[in-house]
Design a protein around this nucleic acid. Structure first.
Lengths: 238, 238
DNA sequence: GCTTTTCACTTGTAAATACAAGTTAAATAA
DNA sequence: TTATTTAACTTGTATTTACAAGTGAAAAGC
C-alpha cells in the first residue's frame, strides 16, 4: 500500500499547530512560540520546525515576520472551498449539511469530459455521485463528483451523508488530496441548477471545475461545483 | 529601504528555471535536471536547490515525484490571475492589452469599503484607478484598484499603459506582493460593467475582491475585478 | 525466454551548524 | 527627560552530512 509507515515529524507538528489554531488555543494576532522554542518543546531541529511553519504559512493560518515571529492569522469566515490544501476541506463543518442527490454509482466517463483522461481512467470508468450542500439550510453547493474507479473496493456502498467524501477516502482507503487545479466561471443557472439551488432561472451562479490529485498514482477526483454566491462568497488565499 | 541588497540564491534559481519553463527550454512532461545536477550547474547545495524547486512546485510549474524527478507541468492556458504568487501576475502577457479608464488619482477611501482599513490607511487616503484589460481585443477584466497612499511619491504621474501596476511598484518603489486574500462571487452585470465588458445587462460576471499584502508594512493594495468568463475561465492551482 | 534480484539513481526527511538581517526593549549617553 | 546605542531576541539564508524510500533498468538466476 501507499501508506507511509511513519508520519514525518514536520507533518505531525503541522497538524498539532493547525489544530491548536483552529481550536483557538492560539487566537488571532497571537505570536506562536518561536522556532527555537518549538524545537525544544517538540524535540526537533529548526529546519524541521520551519518546514511545518512554512506549510502553515502557505495555508494562510500564520504570517511570518522576520525579527518578530509567527503571527496567527486565522480569519477565514467566508466559505473556503477554494483551498482544499492541507488535510481537510476548509469549510467550517459547523452548519454544513450534505444531501445526497444521486448515490454513488459506477458508470462510464461522460463524453467530452471537462478534463482530459488517461487510458487507465477511461478503461475503468468512474464513480459518479451528486450532492447538495446546505449552509444553515440554504443550498449553497450543487456538487457533481467523478472518482476514478481505481482500487476503491465497495465505495459505492458507503454512506456519504455525514462524513465528507474526502474523510472517507482518507480513513478507509488512505487516499489524500495532494493538490489540484480548477477553472472558475460565472454562468447563468440552468433550470436544473436553479431547482437545486433554489434560484431563479438565469441567475448568476459560480461554476468550478476541479481536478484533484491524490497520493495514489493515477487516481484523480473531479468535481463540477455550482455555487450560489448570493449570500456567501468563496474565500481564498494566495 | 526595504531593498534586499542581494537576491537569495534559491530565488535566483527559481527565476531562471521559471523563465526556462515558460520560454519552452523545458517542455511539458520533460524531466528537469536532478537536484544534484542543479547543485553542480549553479553551484549551490541541495537544500537551496530544493527551496527553489518547491516554489516552482507550488506555482504548479513542476510536479515532483520521489524516485523519478521533477516533471514540467506548464499547462496554464486559461487566464491565471488567481495566483499572483511568485513574481509576476500569472497571466500570459502575450496578448494582454491594458486600457486606462481612469488615471490614478489621490482620493479618500470610499465609504463601506470592501475590506476593513487601518487608521493609517484611512488618514492617508488612497490612489484610485480603473483599468480595462483586453485579451485579443476582447475586454476581459474591468479592474478597479485602490492603493494605500503610503510612501509612493509621484505615482499618480506614472504611465500604466504598457507595464503592469505590479511591475511599476516593483521597479520604482521596491514593493512586492507577498500574498493576499480574495472573495469570489458570480453577479449580474450592472449597466456600467456591461458597457465596459461589452456584455448584455444582467449577464453573469465574475466578481473578485482582493486584498494584497506587500513587503512594505502597512501598505496594502485592493482590487475589485469584474471578469467576463464567457470565453475564458479563471484558472488556479491549489 | 522469463522472472527475480540487485544496483544506481532519484527525491524525502532530518540533524547540526553558521551567519545575516529585522525587531524590540533595555541600557547608556546627552 | 530624551535620544542614541547596545544587546538579546526573532526569522532568513546557506552549507554539510546522513540515511530513508521510491523508481527503473541492468544483471543474475531460473
Amino acid at each position: 500500500m501507499v501508506t507511509p509507515r511513519t508520519i514525518p515529524q514536520y507533518r505531525r507538528l503541522y497538524e498539532v499547530l493547525r489544530k491548536h489554531i483552529l481550536d483557538g488555543v492560539y487566537g488571532e494576532g497571537d505570536l506562536l512560540p518561536s522556532e527555537n522554542e518549538l524545537c525544544q518543546l517538540y524535540g526537533m531541529t529548526r529546519p524541521t520546525v520551519r518546514q511545518a511553519l512554512s506549510t502553515l504559512a502557505s495555508d494562510g493560518l500564520i504570517r511570518k515576520h522576520q525579527g518578530k515571529g509567527s503571527i496567527v492569522h486565522n480569519l477565514p469566515r467566508d466559505i473556503g472551498i477554494l483551498s482544499v490544501s492541507g488535510t481537510t476541506s476548509a469549510v467550517g463543518d459547523r452548519n454544513l449539511k450534505t444531501d445526497i442527490i444521486k448515490k454513488p454509482v459506477l458508470i462510464p466517463w461522460p463524453h467530452n469530459f471537462m478534463f482530459p483522461l488517461s487510458d487507465l481512467e477511461n478503461e475503468s470508468g468512474c464513480i459518479y455521485m451528486e450532492r447538495l450542500r446546505l449552509l444553515e439550510n440554504i443550498p449553497i453547493f450543487y456538487d457533481i463528483s467523478y472518482i476514478g474507479n481505481i482500487n476503491l473496493p465497495r465505495i459505492t456502498a458507503r454512506q456519504f451523508e455525514n462524513r465528507s467524501l474526502f474523510q472517507i477516502l482518507r480513513d478507509h482507503y488512505r487516499v489524500e488530496i495532494k493538490g489540484g487545479e480548477q477553472r472558475i466561471k460565472a454562468i447563468p443557472a440552468t433550470s436544473k441548477i436553479s431547482r437545486f439551488l433554489k434560484l431563479k432561472r438565469n441567475q448568476p451562479v459560480l461554476h468550478l471545475e476541479r481536478k484533484m490529485e491524490t497520493n495514489v498514482p493515477g487516481l484523480f477526483i473531479y468535481s463540477s461545483i455550482f455555487c450560489n454566491t448570493e449570500k456567501y462568497s468563496i474565500f481564498g488565499r494566495f
